[in-house]
């Protein structure tokens, strides 16, 4: 049999390039910590990205500077997006310097988010470290919006110091809720801090959950996630029900550029949220 060659494609591809950013306009900028800001943005024209699911991320583009992968911390059906950005490099510095009315490019949403439906019927433990809270925030809201579907809900948020806590006002409203237990801890604090002090895992003994029936969502720096996931596993939470959100260098976000590989996974496409059971052998090795 003869295979048919594919028909020649048109010289100009009519589809917008998959890596092309879509212009959004900055509505507001909130300073969270000395090096972190929260941007609220809206589509500036008719084109917009699909509504992200909790745990997904976007590529944010600063004109003439470049792109950075930033998790989505809020997304409204009207197309408004909230991203919290920490100044660490050229692109994030440019993003953090944006002011209301400025244009920012967006493409996305990318990746697999938190498997909230899989957690139904059992207890949920959410552990966030530092800037791990923004990608977990939409997951917490999704759980609270269908609260009766879950058992006990525990949220533990750890940061380096009190000034490194983000969404401080929102944390206070969460703490007042009776249908979720919210613990905050910092690694070290001055006398002006009346909350808990100790690494994030020290709060776990106080959390109430039934380990075999618990799903855990963990996000933060890699060491913090590894320690937290191990502590959860030690408590008896099944390793395949512990989910962590990995972070790696991303250029394309669609599994074509190779940068974000972690073992067999493309973090951009297969993650960022991945099962601890699949990650554990690689987390145990340096520089994978």
């Amino acid at each position: 049999m003869l295979a048919d060659p594919s028909p020649p494609a048109a010289a100009i591809d009519p589809e917008p390039p998959p890596l092309a950013p879509i212009p959004y306009v900055v509505r507001s900028v909130t300073t969270e910590t000395p090096d972190t800001v929260t941007l609220t943005i809206r589509p500036s024209a008719t084109r917009r990205i699909a509504t992200p699911r909790p745990g997904q991320f976007n590529m944010l583009y600063a004109f003439g500077v470049g792109e950075s992968a930033i998790s989505v911390s809020r997304a409204t059906p009207e197309g408004e997006l909230v991203h919290t950005v920490r100044r660490v490099g050229k692109v994030t510095n440019a993003l953090a310097a944006l002011t209301p009315g400025d244009t920012v490019g967006v493409r996305g949403p990318y990746g697999r988010g938190w498997p909230i439906a899989e957690a139904r019927g059992g207890d949920v433990v959410v552990i966030a470290g530092g800037l791990g809270l923004p990608p977990l925030r939409p997951a917490v809201y999704a759980i609270l919006s269908q609260r009766e579907s879950f058992g006990r809900v525990e949220v533990i948020y750890g940061a380096r110091s009190p000034k490194d806590l983000v969404y401080y006002d929102e944390i206070q409203t969460w703490r007042r809720r009776t249908d979720v237990r919210f613990q905050t801890t910092v690694d070290a604090a001055g006398r002006d801090w009346y909350g808990d002090v100790g690494v994030v895992t020290t709060r776990l003994p106080d959390a109430r959950f039934d380990p075999p029936k618990t799903t855990a969502f963990v996000c933060g720096p890699e060491i913090m996630m590894t320690l937290s996931a191990k502590a959860l596993a030690d408590r008896g939470v099944p390793r395949d029900r512990i989910w962590v959100s990995m972070e790696r260098n991303m250029k394309c976000a669609i599994g074509l550029c190779g940068h974000c590989q972690f073992g067999p996974s493309f973090v951009c496409r297969d993650g960022p949220v991945l099962r601890f059971s699949a990650l554990e052998p690689f987390l145990a090795v340096k520089e994978v």
Binding site: R86, A159, D164, P221, I223, L227
Partner: peptide, 13 residues
């Protein structure tokens, strides 16, 4: 152990 974790400064990226 916790002191060691604090030394790791796990929130420093």
């Amino acid at each position: 152990e916790n002191t060691r974790i604090q030394l790791l400064d796990i929130h420093a990226r």
